[in-house]
Design a protein around this nucleic acid. Structure first.
Length: 468
RNA sequence: GGCCACGUGGCGGAGUGGUUACGCAGCGGAUUGCAAAUCCGUCUACGGGGGUUCGAUUCCCUCCGUGGCCUCCA
């Protein structure tokens, strides 16, 4: 079975072939770290984690490089840093803010069962590469300097708009572009902009300033996925100046990814920045657009207080990554029920191999809902179910740890045990009325019972758990 | 205004030009002292209207609805 991925560039599902057959290179746009990440931010992180795991499964763990950047220079970050750290030098202030925020992000996504990417470069550590890229673009006639800014000249690149399938005419018809006086063309976008004294800034041939948003991804992918593999400024082999997969949210298609492509392709002289462009769909909350004004802006951190990370992960993967998701409490409850069942079913399972049907489903453009259906089909084969679940990033808990994630509320375990013993005694005496009364009493405490027999002695035994 | 997605049974959610998705819930049965858990079985569907076709949920057009991008955004 071969891996097929939907490519936004061609709007079709294509057979995936890495440029280097023995090594896959993937770049995903990471978080802008100025505040807690919300559940929408979690979607690409989880989706591309599954792809990372699948690629490692297919090509081998040492044959995949997954880069997810950290955007730690941005006007929202600047504003937050100035608010929170007044009087601190700006570059230092944003570093402090972004260190903290990224730490929160890491904790969140680890709880969601996501592997650490191979590399997590920070924009502020690649400013020199950004400057070098911009210099190259200016030297090659694709960019120009104006009033302390460096700007990419969009009309210089005939292929501009290919990813978003948008012609320059369409864009001008939209007429929502910022027309600054120093722009040669309304569509030109900023590569570098000047910083005031209280804004973070770095030296450059165009004066002290900071990068535009898009250039950082061109620089970091160049530094992590192209140069270490033989490409770069000194290389004029287009294939060496290309990597395999670039991912992110669908909202990034335009302008962010379009501009990344423009910068990288024009600077490195390659017709393609990445071969495959993948974009995850958007998320709504309880049927409504998530927004701070509606009050339904929900962070990963908040959700993790009430729900196991694996419940959030499973809830995300029940839907195909390109489909819209409606994120609901009801959905999370159902996800939890299913995982409860699988944790119970795999409690005694050994290390299982991964069922081909699951890999096959995932290999069809990451069809996780299909994979979930296959998982249900493995319900009676604990080892196979466990193996497939682990491939997907589940079963990080032991069964006991998992069970303990149900809020135990104020249940007194010793008292529950006493009541259960009393009930067992009553039942043994065939006093079923008393036994049922005790069961009702426990139910009122939120405790549900599961009766069984000891497989060795045949004696009745009762286990219990707290139901919400 | 321009461009682009999506709309499947009570709910979640795949897929397909003619054949059971799957799960949750429900219902029926087995089991149980009665239940719970488990196992077996089972009902409900493809937004509206046209068209193409022997036949469309699946292709085309259109309408309605929801969402995205065009400005920061996963």
């Amino acid at each position: 079975m071969s891996l097929k991925l939907y490519n936004t560039l061609t709007r079709t599902k294509e057979a995936f072939e890495p440029i280097d057959p023995a090594h896959v290179r993937m770049y995903v746009c990471g978080p802008t770290v100025y505040d807690f990440a919300h559940i929408g931010n979690a979607r690409p992180v989880i989706v591309f984690d599954v792809l990372f795991r699948l690629l490692r499964h297919i090509y081998g763990a040492d044959h995949v490089t997954y880069v997810r950047n950290i955007t730690d220079v941005d006007d929202k970050i600047n504003a937050r840093a100035m608010r929170d750290f007044p009087g601190v030098p700006p570059v230092e202030a944003i570093r402090t803010l972004t260190e903290t925020t990224y730490g929160q992000f890491q904790a969140d996504v680890a709880a969601l069962g996501c592997l650490e990417p191979s590399e997590t470069p920070r924009a502020t550590e690649h400013v020199e590469t950004m400057v070098a890229l911009i210099e190259r673009l200016i030297a090659r006639g694709y960019a120009y300097e104006a009033e302390g800014h460096a700007l990419f000249h969009v009309p210089a690149m005939p292929a501009y708009g290919a990813l978003a399938r948008r012609s320059l005419d369409d864009m001008i018809a939209g007429a929502r572009v910022d027309v600054a006086p120093y722009k040669r063309d309304p569509m030109d976008f900023v590569l570098w902009k000047p910083s005031s004294a209280d804004e973070p800034g770095w030296p450059s041939p165009w004066g002290r300033g900071r990068p535009g948003w898009h250039i950082e991804c061109s620089a970091m992918s160049l530094a992590t996925l192209i140069e270490p593999f033989g490409g770069g400024f000194a290389c004029d082999d287009p294939l060496k100046n290309t990597f395999d997969i670039h991912g992110g949210g669908i909202d990034l298609v335009f302008p962010h990814h379009e501009n990344e492509i423009a910068q990288t392709c024009c600077a490195l002289g390659t017709p393609q920045m990445a071969r495959v462009w993948m974009h995850n769909g958007f998320l709504q909350v309880e049927g409504e657009k998530m927004s701070k004004s509606l009050g339904n802006f929900v962070t990963i951190h908040e959700l993790l207080a009430d729900w196991p990370g694996e419940v959030l992960r499973f809830n995300m993967l029940k839907t195909h990554y390109r489909q819209p998701i409606d994120w609901t409490v009801r959905g999370m409850e159902e996800s939890w029920r299913v995982l409860d069942d699988w944790y119970a079913a795999t409690a005694d399972a050994g290390p299982g191999t991964v069922a081909p049907t699951v890999v096959e489903a995932l290999s069809d453009d990451l069809n996780t809902p299909k994979a979930v259906a296959e998982l249900h089909g493995l319900r009676s084969d604990p080892a196979a179910l466990a193996g497939a679940l682990r491939l997907l990033g589940f079963l990080a808990d032991t069964p006991a740890e998992w069970a303990a994630r149900r809020p135990a509320a104020s249940v007194d375990a010793a008292a529950v045990e006493r009541l259960i013993q009393a009930r067992l005694a009553a039942r043994k005496a065939r006093n079923f009325a008393e036994g049922d009364r005790i069961r009702d009493e426990l139910a009122a405490m939120g405790v549900s019972l599961k009766d069984g027999k000891d497989s060795a002695t045949g004696e009745p035994v009762t286990t219990w758990e707290v139901k919400r």
